[in-house]
Design a protein around this nucleic acid. Structure first.
Length: 164
DNA sequence: GCCAACGTTGGC
DNA sequence: GCCAACGTTGGC
């Protein structure tokens, strides 16, 4: 095996890191703590779905982010605890996430499960924007609207220090 | 509630 | 395949 192939394999097997946004009214870090594990239902964006389907692995690190609330920011840590599987809410006519165009034989929307790790202090969006070490963070890029974004190992390490 | 940015839809 | 209209996200 060439060293190139080996390093590619090692990289793909390595733990990856993600920032996942949730509206605390719907699912807060306290909900996750109480439940232990939550299915990350309701994602209706293809890029976010593809991250879950194609790139997330068991044990990947998750920054749990509160969005659309008085103080948006990172509120805790979690980890990916399942592979992607079909989102049941897409077939539920009573759900706000119902997608009449998705068929059970070809589910359009998938999600992973996320397991609680710990609550942290709230690291606000304003603090994150102010931090020179985070200027490249995907979720902070102008115009970003993705609810799931990759986090680099460097960003992850830096954020863990801030949240320790 | 506003609005900028972006994604999706559907007519052509 | 273009693109205008519309819907959604999410900070403020």
């Amino acid at each position: 095996m060439s060293s190139d192939t080996r390093s590619t394999k090692e990289a793909s097997a390595q733990r990856q890191y993600w920032l996942m946004k949730s509206e605390p009214d719907e699912a807060s870090i306290d909900h996750l703590k109480a439940a232990g594990t939550l299915p990350w239902t309701g994602v209706r964006n293809y890029q976010a779905r593809n991250f879950m389907r194609d790139q997330m692995r068991l044990g990947d690190g998750v920054l749990f982010y509160h969005s659309s609330c008085p103080e948006p920011g990172i509120a805790g840590l979690a980890e990916v605890s399942s592979a992607a599987y079909p989102d049941a809410t897409q077939f539920d006519a009573t759900s706000p996430y119902h997608d009449p165009k998705s068929k059970p034989e070809a589910p359009r929307w998938l999600h992973v499960d996320v397991r609680f790790v710990r609550k942290t202090r709230l690291l606000s969006l304003a603090d994150m924007k102010r931090d020179p070490a985070l200027t490249e963070m995907r979720t902070l890029q102008p115009g970003n609207r993705l609810s799931i974004t990759p986090v680099s190992p460097q960003e992850w390490a830096h954020l863990l220090q801030l949240l320790a």
